[in-house]
């Protein structure tokens, strides 16, 4: 900000991944997707509140982004074939 703009410091924020920090540190339990069991129904991806389960097509097994997964375990609950297990981290 230059001196001439000091009268115009605006509360403007920019879209950033991890704006609230590495929210993965909030986790107590960690969901782990068991690849062999996964039927790629995408339920875990669909219901993730943190957009922390990633897929780019229906042909893939979803991946958990542990940097941001808060460990709510909704994915564990909604998986219809029990292809997600939970592991205690803390």
């Amino acid at each position: 900000m230059s001196k001439s703009e000091e009268h115009l410091l605006l509360p403007i924020s920019h879209p950033t991944k991890g704006a609230g920090g590495k929210t993965g540190t909030w986790r107590v339990f960690k969901p782990v997707i068991i690849e062999e069991k996964c039927i790629k129904c995408m339920m875990c991806w669909m219901y993730c509140p943190d957009a922390a389960i990633e897929v780019s097509s229906r042909q893939e097994v979803p991946r958990v982004n542990y940097d941001y997964c808060k460990g709510c375990l909704i994915c564990y609950e909604v998986c219809p074939v029990k292809a997600i297990r939970k592991e205690r981290e803390v």
């Binding site: 879209p15 920090g21 929210t23 509140p49 922390a52 709510c72």
Partner: peptide, 17 residues
């Protein structure tokens, strides 16, 4: 985007997505 500050398991952010 991941890394927002909603509580774990928040229903509102699932809807917003």
């Amino acid at each position: 985007l991941p890394g927002h500050t909603a509580c774990p398991g928040c229903g509102s952010v699932i809807a917003l997505r």
